[in-house]
Amino acid sequence: MMAKILVVDDSGMSRRTLRRILEPAGHQISEAEDGIAALEQYFIDKPDLVLLDLTMTGMYGIEVLSRLREMDSQARVIIASADIQSSTRSLVEEGGASAYINKPFAAEHVLDAVNRVLQGGAGGAD
């Protein structure tokens, strides 16, 4: 299932990695380096899915998640973070995240989470 996916991360390395995983699977990727750019791009492009980092310069991912969900209550957001704490996972799930994947990224985990969320399932743990 081809989808428009917005990757939000202040790390160019992470954005490149996700693009390299997702584009060969047929998805169309756009990128944002920070929360403000992400919100603007979401408003303009209406992507099918957002992959969102948590620790970013400026607006933190938790706030971006909250604002995305305010903008669009149906927004599908997968958190893609180095934070491996189960307490963080609970926090973002309460905030409306559809799934959670950890860095370093494993292609099969990324694709599995993306496919599950696009098909309307819960993302589950990485």
């Binding site: 790390s11 620790t55 973070s81 180095a82 934070d83 491996i84 704490q85 860095k103």
Partner: peptide, 12 residues
């Protein structure tokens, strides 16, 4: 970013 991943892994 490597530092971010490793330090988060440790403290997380």
């Amino acid at each position: 970013e490597v530092g971010n991943i490793l330090l988060n892994a440790c403290l997380g």
